[in-house]
Design a protein around this nucleic acid. Structure first.
Lengths: 177, 177
DNA sequence: CGGTACATGTAATCTGTTACATGATTCA
DNA sequence: TGAATCATGTAACAGATTACATGTACCG
């Protein structure tokens, strides 16, 4: 399960609770590796049992108590091994593209509407990416090496999102009329 | 399960056996919706039980016998409903992008090598897409509506693959030296 | 003789989703 | 008063992967 490795990657920078990790997986890292809080809590439990992360319970007043997790040395080692190992990619599953094969039989207008919705979502996503970029990554050449990787992941998101918007535009202009 | 809908979509054009469907899911449709033969046989069984597809056993000499599946009217109806319904997309899970966050701690060269491998894979994939394009989709404006959808799905593949290659190039030039 | 293509499956396991559960605090 | 945020989980189910199983024919 490489969700555990994504979690450990998130723990490189800061110690986090399950709840905080779930939020990271909603943005940033989550753009490239999505996970629900249920998955995350379960994975954390296993990581803790394998001693790849350590846990500390924090009492809070006014809020529920929480458990903060931190990478252990053996967690770091495990991460290193994973980074060097086989790298797998699970391609996206996009119902819209399958639906495109159905154009002509079913209602064209409805599919056009779906493409427009898709376009809107990607425009929002791109704006978010650009915001992050302009706040933290204006001068990529002079970033420390560690940050260059994060910057490049962000660029992947930006490029793919721009491409999706372009595809929506091309599709709309071919299908409309 | 919308694997069944992807299968029914593949059956729009021709009647196919499980084995032949599995091959389609290895290329073409499979670029947007991947599935193993085990998944496909299982889904076909269920589709048949629900009478969304019909099956015909074909005796062959020299080869194993096979079952050819065809869409039924109620399968067509079910597909129509699905096309108009909610459209979900599961974003790709890309270990390489998670590994990018680890640059700086672990070996840079190894990650650079992985990006080069990725680039090579995408170059091959693009060549394949371009071949399909040049054989069947040279004049998109004048395609029948039904084929325009398939053409646009192919374009999505082409654009995304080109973008990935560009990302590899950008990354290599930022990380090398 | 070994590999690939043809052809269809079962079983176990791993991952991911949906639904449910609890409960305090803060903001509108 | 109701929704959102903080915080952590369990249970059932759905979907996907890996391993295993079987057997012919054809090509080099």
């Amino acid at each position: 399960m490489s969700l555990s490795h994504a979690i450990m990657t998130a723990l490189l920078d800061e110690d986090l609770s399950g709840y905080e990790l779930a939020k990271r997986f909603d943005v940033s890292l989550g753009f490239f590796w999505s996970a629900s809080h249920q998955q995350i809590y379960k994975a954390l439990k296993q990581l803790h049992e394998s001693a790849l992360v350590s846990a500390k319970d924090i009492d809070q007043q006014g809020k529920p108590n929480k458990r903060i997790y931190a990478l252990t040395d053996s967690g770091r080692k495990d991460l290193d091994t994973w980074v060097l190992g086989e790298t797998r990619t699970k391609p996206a599953k996009d119902e819209l593209l399958v639906k495109m094969y159905n154009i002509g039989r079913s209602d064209l207008d409805q599919i056009v509407a779906k493409i427009e919705v898709r376009r809107g979502e990607h425009v929002l996503k791109l704006a978010l990416f650009r915001k992050i970029e302009s706040r933290q990554y204006l001068d990529p050449e002079n970033l420390p090496l560690r940050k260059k990787g994060v910057y490049l992941a962000l660029q992947a998101g930006i490029l793919q999102t721009e491409t999706s918007i372009r595809w929506c535009d091309d599709s709309l202009s071919l299908l409309k009329r």
